[in-house]
């Protein structure tokens, strides 16, 4: 019997998970969707965010989400530094496609193995008042360790969306995505705008990482599973579109949750990549594409 309880639980859990996926993907939606920087190391940065949250939480008992916010400026600076290297080595010479990909691929390994060497391969988890608690809406259970990340992710996505749509610098980021030359003619420096945007994209990983470790235990190579998810979400959402990205994240979360409830969790990793392959093969412009 296909129980309604099971299905509604899977749907709600998927929706909450999908919101969290949006928080993980929003940085990539900026760097890959807007700036055309194929940051494969993005999920690895998210895992670094998790480790920062874990360290501060276990040492000083700080709330992980708060740590995520506090660490964001540091991540911003790291992102700016990485973009400087990327720009000097690849973008300026027009080699960003092949060499740039390899650069981020190597960076991903360095980050992952660096964490492994420093903290080992054990699963790490954080403690906070709301982890482990849940409340019920009828037959549907709402675990707070999923609700808190969902709300935080909603705030993050909404904030970034407003920022890009309403503020001067936000609109400059959208402009550099459309036509860097035109931006230059308007008297703005595309490199500085891109540098700021990449810093912003990296800053979101601090919060996303904190949310990741609130949802469940984290070990250094957990980022690999997210490569497929984040790229699937950004491509499915239509590259540049933040709203599209959000809808795609919710969709993927729901499909994954339903698949792992009814077919078994071992099939879940294939869902994201299957969605990604299908999108690329059938509709590369995504659901809400610009083209």
């Amino acid at each position: 019997m296909l129980s309604v309880d099971l299905l509604s639980n899977a749907l709600v859990a998927g929706l909450l998970l999908g919101g969290f996926y949006a928080a993980v993907s929003i940085g990539l939606a900026i760097s890959f969707g807007q700036l055309d920087i194929v940051n494969i190391a993005h999920p690895a940065f998210v895992v670094v965010g998790s480790y920062v949250a874990w360290i501060l939480n276990s040492r000083f008992g700080l709330d992980p989400v708060l740590v995520g916010l506090l660490a964001a400026p540091l991540f911003f600076a790291a992102g700016v530094a990485i973009y400087r290297i990327y720009y000097a080595a690849f973008e300026r010479t027009g080699q960003e496609s092949l060499s740039g990909l390899a650069f981020f691929f190597g960076l991903m390994f360095i980050v992952e193995v660096g964490l492994m060497l420093a903290y080992g391969v054990d699963y790490r988890l954080v403690s906070a008042g709301y982890i482990g608690k849940s409340f019920n809406l009828g037959p549907v259970g709402l675990p707070l360790r999923l609700v808190v990340p969902f709300v935080a992710a909603l705030a993050l996505t909404g904030g970034i969306w407003l920022y890009l749509a309403r503020t001067f610098t936000g609109r400059a980021i959208l402009a550099v995505a459309q036509d860097p030359l035109a931006l230059q003619l308007m008297g703005a420096d595309p490199v500085r705008v891109k540098q700021f945007a990449f810093g912003l994209a990296t800053a979101t990983t601090a919060l996303a990482g904190a949310l990741l470790i609130v949802i469940g235990p984290v070990e250094p190579s957990v980022g690999r599973e997210y490569i497929g998810r984040v790229f699937a979400i950004v491509v499915l959402g239509g590259m540049g579109s933040i709203g599209g990205m959000f809808v795609a994240a919710l969709l993927l979360g729901i499909v994954e949750s339903v698949v792992s409830t009814f077919a078994g969790p071992s099939w879940a990793p294939a869902v994201a990549f299957g969605v990604l392959l299908l999108t690329l093969a059938l509709r590369p412009a995504g659901l809400f594409g610009r083209r």
Partner: peptide, 15 residues
């Protein structure tokens, strides 16, 4: 896109 698709293919086969 080709590169990402090949990465995706690897995970699908692994699953």
């Amino acid at each position: 896109y080709f590169s990402i698709a090949t990465l995706a293919m690897a995970i699908v086969f692994a699953t």
